[in-house]
Amino acid sequence: MNRLSRKYLQAIIIVVILLCVFYKLNEKYPSSTTIKGILSENGEGIEISEVVTVAKINDTESLVFYRDVLNNLYSALVKKTIRNRWIMKKYTGAIPLINSVNSVYKNKLIWTWNNFETITFTYGVIYDSNITRITIGADEAFLLKDIGMWYFIDKVKRSLPNDDIKGYNQDNQLIYSYYPDKALN
């Protein structure tokens, strides 16, 4: 075997080893070909009813809102890998979509603020059907009126929520408000 063909053989072996290592690193997390598949696989025993909406964060990451068979709302940050498979990076706990008479949530709306690796966001459920618009600071939240869900993806990554959350009726009258600086006192 001459010197040139030996170098080519070594280069091919190195490339194959690197590809195997790269493939194994990509399999560090469970993956699926569909978003619903990865939510079901990583959902800690949660039986998923449906993916409610998917908000694209960038070319590879999306924020997914989904509900379970008990009508609870969840969110998860998912990422599409180079191999065109989905992995779940983080997920949140449940918010009940229905405000029952015995619920501890007697408010007009409930919400949760989340600080994931690459984004911060607020999402929640509207229990007062009179609320038709929600603002976070000066920005509008996105509403899914058919199920009473809303969300806001913050453009500034923060360590604490520091914007007012306000709910308005169809006449643009303020009927719900949360002011973080007053809530912390």
Rank of each mutant, 00 (worst) to 15 (best):
F152T: 01
L70E: 15
N42G: 04
L160V: 13
V125T: 04
S32P: 02
N26P: 00
S32V: 01
K106Y: 00
L144Q: 08
Y123L: 04
S5Q: 15
G93A: 08
T53K: 10
S40P: 06
Q173M: 14
V69S: 13
K79R: 12
I12M: 09
A138R: 14
G167N: 03
N58E: 07
Y123V: 05
Y179M: 13
G45I: 00
S49K: 15
V69Q: 15
A76N: 09
E140K: 13
I119M: 08
Y105N: 06
P161F: 07
A76M: 10
G37A: 11
D146K: 11
N2V: 05
I134H: 02
N84M: 12
D59V: 00
K89H: 12
L4E: 15
K182I: 15
A183G: 10
G124H: 01
Y179H: 15
E47H: 11
A55S: 15
L174T: 11
I98N: 08
I17H: 08
D128N: 13
K157I: 12
L18G: 11
S62C: 11
V125F: 04
T135P: 04
D68P: 00
V51M: 03
S62L: 06
F121P: 01
N58W: 08
T135H: 03
V78Q: 01
Q170K: 15
R3S: 14
S129M: 00
T118E: 12
S103Y: 09
Y179F: 14
R85M: 11
T112A: 13
Y23F: 15
Y29G: 00
D128E: 06
V54A: 13
K79A: 04
W150M: 01
N2Q: 09
R133T: 05
K28C: 08
V69F: 08
L25K: 11
I13G: 07
A76G: 12
D171G: 09
N169M: 09
M149Q: 09
R85D: 07
F65M: 06
K28F: 12
C20R: 08
K90D: 11
A183F: 14
S32F: 04
S75V: 02
K145D: 13
L143N: 06
N130H: 09
K145Y: 08
L77R: 05
N107A: 07
L39E: 04
N102Q: 13
E44C: 03
L63R: 02
R83M: 14
N107L: 04
C20H: 09
V125R: 00
A141H: 01
L77H: 06
L109G: 01
N26L: 10
R85H: 11
Q173C: 10
I57W: 03
A76K: 05
V15R: 05
Y176L: 05
I12P: 01
G43I: 00
T53N: 09
Y66W: 06
S62Y: 05
V15P: 01
N99P: 08
V15W: 10
